Amino acid sequence: MYLGIDIGGTFIKYALIDEENKVIKKWKKETKLKETKDEFYDYLCEGLDKYEYEAIGISAPGVIDSNSNILSKAAENVQIMYGTNVNLEVSKRLKKKVATINDAKAAGYCEFLLGNGKGTRSSVYFIIGTGIGGCVCDSQGVIQGVNGMAGEFSGIALSKDKDKPQFWASVASIPALVRIYNEKANENLKYGTEVCKKYLNNEETAIKAMEEWVDNICLCFYNIILFINPEVICLGGGISEEDWFIDLVKERFTNMENPFLEICTTKIKRCLYGNDANLLGAVLYLRRENN
């Protein structure tokens, strides 16, 4: 039995996972803002010594190097992790072996081994949320890069304008969808689900906003294809569980008229494992590291 931990900006999710990759027990708690890293890791590990498990696989946000050092800041509630060594902090509290991987890479690794990237020689995982999580795999698994930055799609630059810099996260994340709609409708919506509801109710402004946003996602895919030319791009994040969204992305991508797309064979799919992908991917990574 293994313990999987998925550290997010809103919730910390936990799961006990067996040798057959079956989730035996799953629970979560709110991610609370802590003043010190010791308070944060104490809270993370609180109560975990009462369970039976062999080792711990952790999925965490931000750039993480091969030694589990957190090299970049993420959401406010987890920024205290910046500059810490996750394996060291957790292992000294729980006395277990620990392996830590970036959250999007955990999801991608799960899909690569078990999901819609299984059996491919090249695959990309595009996780849509408050930013854009990314993971690139070859036939051997996750490509980390020298410092663990490979696949950090959120930070890919579209503009160097110092007053209003544009990145992939600026145009293709859920907050980007909300911004596009608000600018068109002169409203002040806060959540992507609100825009989706209006879109599904055939509101004209929502339809225009959704199509512009999906076109931005497709442009990201086009750039990925030119650089990597993967066999498959898998979409993740909550919205990827909606059939209408996957269908719309495929339709808008098929109708793009950019160079080379007429010979492109890259398939677009959703991630198969949804909300469990990070937890499963972290444990799969742990087992690989322990072998």
Rank of each mutant, 00 (worst) to 15 (best):
E89S: 08
K92C: 07
V283I: 08
I24Q: 15
T193D: 11
P175V: 12
P230S: 12
G115N: 05
S122Q: 07
C135Y: 09
I143F: 12
Y109T: 03
G129M: 03
K97F: 07
I132C: 11
E19S: 12
N275R: 10
W213I: 09
K118Y: 06
L279W: 06
I17Y: 02
K162V: 10
E289D: 09
I228R: 05
T254S: 15
N69C: 07
E35T: 08
N69V: 07
E183C: 08
K197Q: 14
T100N: 12
L71T: 12
K160C: 09
A277N: 03
C110L: 07
E111F: 09
R121S: 14
V283S: 06
K29C: 08
D103K: 07
N188Q: 11
W244K: 11
D6I: 03
L3H: 00
V136S: 03
A157C: 15
L284S: 12
W168P: 04
I17S: 12
A75L: 10
L44D: 02
G134A: 11
A107I: 05
L235I: 07
V136K: 00
K28T: 03
M149V: 13
K250W: 07
R270Y: 00
R179C: 00
F167Q: 11
V63S: 04
N116E: 06
N216H: 15
I207L: 09
P259Y: 13
N69R: 08
N255D: 10
V146C: 06
L48S: 10
I64E: 01
C234I: 15
L219R: 00
A169M: 12
Y199I: 02
L158N: 06
I239K: 00
F227R: 14
I217S: 02
V283A: 11
K105S: 08
D42P: 13
I143W: 11
L261V: 10
S159M: 05
L16R: 01
L158M: 14
N147R: 13
I101E: 10
I143V: 15
T205V: 15
C110A: 14
K267H: 06
N278Y: 01
N147I: 13
G129K: 08
I233R: 04
K198E: 06
V142R: 04
A107S: 12
G115K: 05
I239R: 03
N87S: 14
Q79A: 06
C271K: 01
W168G: 02
I132G: 10
P165T: 12
A206E: 05
M256Y: 09
W27N: 03
I128V: 14
G148T: 14
K184W: 01
R93N: 08
D138K: 04
L284M: 13
N116A: 11
E76G: 00
K184S: 07
G9L: 09
S173C: 12
Y191C: 05
E194M: 10
A150E: 04
E30Y: 08
N202F: 14
E257A: 01
V23K: 01
Y51A: 01
A107H: 02
C45T: 15
E231S: 05
I268N: 11
T36C: 07
A206N: 10
V142M: 08
G8N: 06
S72L: 01
L48I: 00
G141Q: 11
W213G: 08
K198A: 13
E183K: 08
G236I: 00
I174K: 03
T205S: 03
I217Y: 02
I17F: 06
K22P: 01
V249Y: 00
N275D: 13
S240E: 04
